[in-house]
């Protein structure tokens, strides 16, 4: 469904990705792992078109999307939850969801479905998003992506800086979404969580894929060595 081939990208003259290739098939959950600074976020940003690719291709459902704008990729069914539980801080929780719903052209039911995944947001609909706690903001961020009815959900460290009980809720939500048939590309630092959720994993180091395999392989010594700080 998503296939990334020899992707290269960077910031100005500083190159970050040196030919990254990976694939996510229908309904699969792929976890991207690696230490800080190896290019995980850059990879996701390039897949979404926030950063231009300087080489390689991104293909989504058989279509080359390498040169498409981010909003066009969202239209095709790529949902993105960037790092750092980002929201539109001055809009209400409902406003955050509505603005995405309106842009997507989906029916109201998409918004209701997203709220079913995170029922904690329901009593907060009128609250300004900027005044929510980090965990609530992250749930809102994922709900906002769900409103676009993605076929592939791309999540960048959804558990970063969030209290353990909320992490559990987010993990359960991801699990349920995955079970419902949505493909997921997840960047995650917690090895345990990755082991529980992922069908396949990819380990990045210095802008290249150094290891890839099924969740079972991740138990091996090699993977642990690559992830150790």
């Amino acid at each position: 469904m998503l296939s990334v081939d020899g992707l290269e990208a960077g910031y100005g003259r500083a190159r970050v990705l040196f030919g990254v290739s990976l694939a996510v098939t229908e309904g699969q959950l792929v976890c991207v792992m690696g230490r800080n600074g190896v290019g995980k976020t850059t990879l996701l940003n390039t897949i979404m078109g926030v950063l231009p690719a300087t080489g390689g291709t991104v293909t989504f459902e058989g279509r080359d999307v390498t040169r498409l704008k981010p909003h066009e990729r969202v239209k095709l069914g790529m949902g993105y939850v960037p790092q750092g539980h980002e929201t539109f801080p001055q809009l209400s929780v409902l406003g955050n969801l509505l603005v995405t719903l309106e842009a997507s052209g989906n029916p109201q039911s998409a918004l209701d479905d997203a709220l079913e995944v995170f029922p904690r947001l329901k009593p907060l609909l009128k609250r300004r998003a900027g005044f929510l706690s980090g965990g609530q903001q992250q749930q809102l961020a994922i709900a906002r992506a769900l409103v676009t009815k993605p076929k592939l959900l791309i999540l960048d460290e959804p558990t970063e800086g969030i209290q353990p009980s909320i992490i559990l809720e987010i993990e359960e939500a991801i699990e349920r979404l995955h079970a419902s048939g949505i493909a997921v590309l997840l960047v995650e630092q917690y090895l345990d969580l990755a082991l529980r959720l992922a069908d396949r994993y990819v380990i990045l180091d210095a802008g290249q894929v150094v290891h890839a395999g099924t969740a079972a392989d991740l138990q091996g010594e090699e993977a642990r060595r690559l992830l150790a700080v």
Binding site: V74, E86, T87, F88, P89, L91, V99, A145
Partner: peptide, 22 residues
């Protein structure tokens, strides 16, 4: 709806783009 989109872009342009707003 248009005004809400305008606010979204003003508050977080990149997030607006990756949320599907043109």
């Amino acid at each position: 709806a248009q005004g809400r989109r305008m606010q979204a872009v003003m508050q977080n342009r990149q997030l607006a783009a990756t949320s599907g707003i043109n």
